[in-house]
């Protein structure tokens, strides 16, 4: 995609062309170009939230769709995510300053005994891009870490990730502990990871299994909205 674009000067593109070019650059995992594009749009007076949603999240959606459809593979998605991370590093402090809308708060982490975090990191980033506040607990989290963070952060959503068939049952331990403590209904529980499926999600008592980061975002949006409607009814 990028071979013929070597001579493009981003600052000479108009807004629409630049956003299209940033889609291509995200797709190609070009972190420096994405950071440059973000700065150009900000210099042109774009609000940080608009840069995030129109340029970065829009571009990552294409990446996510092509990954789902088997056109892109994990290495390319990681490069794209790394490029988006570059853009986010510029936008994140600005978003906090400008009071960009927050639609919910998520505590997310990989379960105890599991050190895999690529999928979780993608979900964190896409959730932030969609306007959620994300508290990322990292890897190898025992049940206490999840519960403490949910309580402390007053979160709406708990996200749990696992890559191994041997560690994914730990998600049930966390959910069962929430039930025991009478807190299960306080949170939307989303689970994900390569060996999981919808059946497993249901069996352990999660609210939803999310196949990928894009599905996690859409599911979270829908469920948070439903929850707000219910609480305000």
């Amino acid at each position: 995609m990028s071979d013929e674009d070597d001579d493009i000067i981003l600052s000479e593109l108009d807004d629409e062309e630049l956003v299209q070019q940033m889609f291509d650059d995200l797709y190609d995992g070009l972190k420096d170009e994405i950071m440059e594009g973000v700065n150009i749009l900000l210099d042109r007076g774009w609000a940080p939230y608009r840069v995030l949603t129109d340029a970065l999240v829009g571009g990552m959606k294409i990446v996510g769709d092509d990954f789902r459809d088997g056109i892109l593979f994990v290495p390319e998605v990681l490069l794209a995510a790394n490029a988006m991370k570059g853009g986010m590093s510029i936008l994140k402090p600005l978003l906090a300053e400008t009071g960009a809308p927050t639609i919910g708060k998520m505590v997310i982490g990989t379960v105890k005994g599991d050190i895999h975090d690529i999928g979780k990191n993608l979900v964190s980033m896409m959730m932030e891009g969609a306007g959620f506040e994300v508290v990322d607990l990292g890897i190898n989290n025992p049940v206490e870490d999840y519960l403490d963070a949910l309580d402390k952060e007053k979160a709406d959503i708990l996200g749990m990730s696992a890559l191994l068939t041997t560690t994914m049952p730990y998600m049930k331990v966390v959910i069962d502990t929430l039930i025991e403590q009478g807190k299960r209904d306080d949170y939307i529980v989303l689970v994900g990871g390569a060996p999981l499926n919808e059946e497993f999600g249901k069996a352990i008592g999660a609210d939803a299994y999310c196949r990928d980061a894009a599905v996690a975002v859409e599911t979270a949006k829908t469920m948070v909205q439903r929850r707000h409607n219910r609480l305000s009814a």
Binding site: F73, P75, L79, I115, D117, I118, I139
Partner: peptide, 18 residues
Amino acid sequence: PMGLDRHPQLRDMYFGHY
């Protein structure tokens, strides 16, 4: 399959916690 032949910079994203 992990693309490390084409993108060696991904190594630590995959194996940073190992």
